[in-house]
């Protein structure tokens, strides 16, 4: 009978003949991964999800989804030229997924759930309601963008990342990122022109 244990704990060779790390080394590398790659950007991760999802329960779920995705792609992240950017992109992607899921659910419901917006009776200030509506429209517009354009625009505008970093995270050229951002922005300007600034309105005409 061949030894075919896939235990990392005792450093036993697996079926492919690889000698797997002893547990101690394995744990050290996992701790190192967390301390070097996640810890320095944990605030950015949380904030980039919140700024897009803007719903506490959904933000927690989205954050958990992002962590699960990071867990599945540990090897890819470790070997990536810019692991921090890739992790932030994973968070953005998860946030966009949540946004789309919420839109799909609302389409099933057909009506907007009342609890999403402050009710008129409760709202002393009309601006709160107005800003919620603007927020909803912006999120809806982001939702309508093709995924790569949405990711590029959000990484550029919300996360304020340089084009080179976005290109590394999206694994494409800097020119492609610039095109994505430019087209995404143009669409947002067109769709959101009614939301305020006069200059935007002129463009849409």
């Amino acid at each position: 009978m061949d030894i075919a244990i896939t235990s990392r704990k005792h450093g036993v060779p697996d079926t492919q003949g690889w000698t797997v790390c002893p547990e101690e080394i394995f744990l050290k590398s996992e701790k190192l991964f967390f301390d070097q790659l996640i810890r320095p950007i944990e605030h950015q991760m949380m904030r980039s999800i919140w700024r897009i999802v803007r719903d506490p329960e959904m933000a927690k779920d989205t954050f958990q989804d992002s962590l699960a995705k990071i867990w599945k792609r540990l090897d890819r992240i470790r070997s990536h030229p810019n692991p921090h950017a890739l992790i932030l992109k994973i968070c953005l992607n998860a946030a966009i997924d949540s946004l789309r899921k919420r839109t799909r659910l609302r389409q099933h419901e057909k009506t907007e759930p009342l609890h999403r917006f402050p009710s008129l009776s409760d709202t002393k200030n009309h601006e709160a309601l107005e800003s919620k509506k603007i927020e909803a429209e912006i999120l809806e517009a982001i939702n309508r963008l093709p995924r790569r354009q949405a990711v590029a625009v959000l990484m550029r505008i919300i996360q304020e990342q340089p084009y080179t970093v976005i290109a590394q995270a999206m694994e494409c050229s800097e020119t492609t990122v610039r095109i994505h951002v430019s087209r995404g922005r143009a669409r947002l300007i067109q769709w959101l022109s009614h939301l305020k600034p006069a200059s935007l309105k002129e463009v849409s005409k």
């Binding site: 927020e135 919300i158 305020k196």
Partner: peptide, 24 residues
Amino acid sequence: DKFEIDDLLKQTLKDDLPPELENS
């Protein structure tokens, strides 16, 4: 236009993560 749409996005999707959510 570019700056205005950027500002609109930044102002609306502002960085106001609630502390209790951050703790969670």
